[in-house]
Design a protein around this nucleic acid. Sequence first.
RNA 1: GGGUCCGUGGCCUAGUUUGGAUAAGGCACCGUCCUUCUAAGUCGGUGAUCGGGGGUUCAAAUCCCCCCGGGCCCGCCA
Length: 549
Amino acid sequence: MFPMLLYDDFRKKIADCTSGGRIELHRSDIEIDTRGFADFVVKTFRHKDQAAIGELVERIRGLEFVERCDHSGDYVNVSIRAESLFSLLDSAISSTGIFPDVFQDPERVVVEHTSANPTGPIHVGRIRNSIIGDSMARIYSRYGYRVSTQYFVNDSGKQVMAMYAGFQRYCAGLPLSVENLLHGYQEIYRHMDALGGEDAVISPLLKRYETPDEALLAEIKNACSVVLKDIRDTMSRLGISIEDYVWESGFLQSEELVEVFESLKPKLKEDGDARYVQMPWGKKEYLVRSDGTRLYLARDLAYHLFKAHHFDVIVDVLGEDHKDYARTIGHVLSDLMEVDRRFEFLIYSFISLEGAKLSTRQGNIITVNDLIERGREEASRIVSGKENSYDSKTRESIAEAVAVSSIRFNVIRVNPQKAIVFRWDEALSTEGDSAPFVMYSFARSTSILDKGTASNLRKRQFDVEEKSLLWNMYLYPESLERSLASKRPDLIAAYVLSLTKAFNDFYSSCQVNVQDDEVRGTRRRIVEMYRTIVKDAADLIGIKMLERM
RNA sequence: GGGUCCGUGGCCUAGUUUGGAUAAGGCACCGUCCUUCUAAGUCGGUGAUCGGGGGUUCAAAUCCCCCCGGGCCCGCCA
């Protein structure tokens, strides 16, 4: 089943004009104009037959939604009638409440994101995973997929063992808190060499763990839960909630693990008592150590098999350090194990600190909670400085929404492939291309609707700013499509900005609440449609729209 | 060393997948607009050899090759 958006696609209809004619053009020859010549441009470089192009122009002119169509240079410029855009959007939103409507797709998608080792609070380096993952899940969902989200909790590796051992050694008797666990974790790595290295400190625990020693399992899971609670609270503040937390320890002896080894049996190679699979690009990937214990890869494959049992599309959001790893699991699952499911990976580059590297272990982090707090203070100051005075409760809720939205926006707006260098002023920026810019326009639209009175819709000439706003609204499906196909949530951010700019132009040029019934009626309707669409799109990237700010 | 991704005005970010008409936003800087619906806004201005070099093409920020700079990976860690 192929996911689809339901709306009247003018672009497709223009493409249809070329079929059966003397020149054939593909949908990709028809572009959205970005230079101000028209709305759509049809590229005709490869067609020198002027008569045939003239014929095409005539056919396009015949379309009821086309206002103007001219052949100029090597392009055919097509302008769409504002009335057509208006009635398309109006009827879609009137009948279904959204634009574009979707065909409910029965395919089940699971997006795994965040999955950070529970060894400390979530920091700005890690949050990109959560922000991208959550937005991507929302985009799949908006597209009509049945979506679930998961966090794979690592409670079985060296890092959490070290945290547990560190807490025992350096915080004995103290309460099991995030601060104490983090302290123990950092201390034990500081003294690792003096204590005899990982072999002496961690390996015995790992061995007991995999036996399995149920009491140890429970204690470590308990410690992880404490840190995880803190991570969950932070994410929840950002409007991110993950449906299922799947514990790695659950796969130590699972059916799926047995299934992995069963399925890989013919492909598994021996190296002493260790076992590995050979990658076609030359690497050996180990699943079993010489001492018989299993590596993370084995448990993660079991986890992916578990996901494959319940979902059709399995999406992992991973940092660029896991790029080769993703290639490995993709190959093992699809080619070696021949699991008939779509495994997809969204790889993003890191957020770094200027000069320094982020590290939980070394204590060199900016926590997301700190970031939100700073943002809240900043926003609170701006709200207080405004003329219309809000009570302190309203002011604080505005500040929180602005802080959270700004942080999410400034992360999501960058192509996941590109690295981000963290800077305080950029992370919390409230001017220009930012979340508050979008939110503020929305708040102004609330005022417009509050102040005037409704009236009947009547057909009339639209101004250029009205047309431009309508056109931008019409383009929403294009952004949704591209964003989903290329797993680029940043494209939604770009769309939200351009829609907001179009609304601001409209706002400054077109008074809405005027005497004239026809003008007032259509303009108020345009504002309502804008609110529906901008809210829809903003929600995909976690911007919290406020009625007032 | 091998692999991989990135390099667009002083700074940040789109545009590269599918080559085409004036390279688009934002920040900063200079100037404009609050007795029309919220100035977190609007309008205008300064500022780009699209990292460098070669190639393909009627046409290259976009495709190919080489080089330079930076991130990440190259564990019987997770």
